[in-house]
Write a protein that binds this DNA or RNA. Structure first.
Length: 261
DNA sequence: ATGGTCGATATTCGA
């Protein structure tokens, strides 16, 4: 099984890019974030035409929104309010082998890394804390967590860790919470199983850079985690940087994992 | 030290 996660930054605008992605990588399951559309406008026909007959979506006008497209049957679709908001950031399904797949879009957290003046940063920290407490309450068994987690935890998940200490996505406050969530049920960071920790690895580059490729001030914000039962089934994981060159690009590229059957 | 760009939408907000 091949599984992709991608912050697509408007699913309606980027149907052609999704088609190109499917032509090149042919994932069996695709998890999307920031679909940015109400469910009634979701481009179901385009997805069905690519063979994704099984789809679950949870979107709203303009902001956030998550979706799972699959060639495999999906059951037990659930939507989760987080931090008391029904803001379309977390859904889950069960795959045919029983694995529960969670698709998350953690809040970006605004600009100032200071909860006293930035409620969005507080929301982000609260969201991660809520998830940390929630995972151990879930039934035991195989789980996959994917999504735009909006935190780059490791030194080489950002272009300059020292310079980014007070930049939202790489602050100690976020990273300590991120680590606590990871430890909650022993989540395995799949991309770093295949790319050494001392090697730079990014999934996002700002739209604002004059030349994102040359500047290469990226961050690894998008993640695939699995519970330990699935570790032996991991075969490969790629983050296709080349997709950041496709037009018109999302500011994120997918992370794609292959599982042994 | 500053400003730079997107997308959805409405002339601003969130990233």
């Amino acid at each position: 099984m091949r599984l992709a996660t991608w912050n697509i930054n408007s699913v309606r605008l980027r149907v052609p890019l999704l088609q190109q992605m499917v032509a090149e990588f042919a994932p069996d399951v695709i998890c999307l974030q920031e679909t940015k559309t109400a469910d009634e406008f979701f481009p179901h026909d385009d997805m069905a035409a690519m063979g994704y007959d099984h789809r679950v979506i949870w979107g709203q006008k303009s902001y956030n929104g998550v979706a799972i497209l699959s060639r495999l049957p999906l059951t037990d679709f659930q939507k989760y309010d987080r931090c008391g908001k029904a803001d379309c950031r977390h859904i889950s399904v069960r795959l045919p082998d029983g694995t529960v797949l969670h698709n998350l879009y953690i809040p970006a957290g605004g600009y100032e890394a200071d909860v006293k003046i930035n409620p969005k940063f507080q929301h982000k920290l609260d969201f991660v804390d809520e998830m940390t407490a929630w995972w151990p309450l879930q039934p035991k068994g195989k789980k996959i967590l994917v999504g735009d987690l909006n935190i780059a935890p490791l030194e080489h998940d950002v272009w300059d860790s020292k310079k980014m200490q007070r930049v939202v996505s790489h602050t100690p406050e976020e990273i300590s919470r991120f680590s606590a969530m990871q430890k909650s049920v022993g989540w395995i960071d799949v991309a770093r199983e295949f790319t050494p920790h001392d090697e730079k690895l990014y999934s996002w580059w700002s739209y604002r850079a004059a030349d994102w490729d040359a500047a290469d001030r990226g961050r690894r914000l998008d993640h695939i985690w699995v519970t330990p039962e699935l570790k032996d089934r991991l075969r490969a994981c790629i983050t296709p940087r080349t997709m950041r060159h496709w037009k018109p690009p999302s500011d994120h590229v997918p992370v794609i994992v292959d599982f042994k059957d």
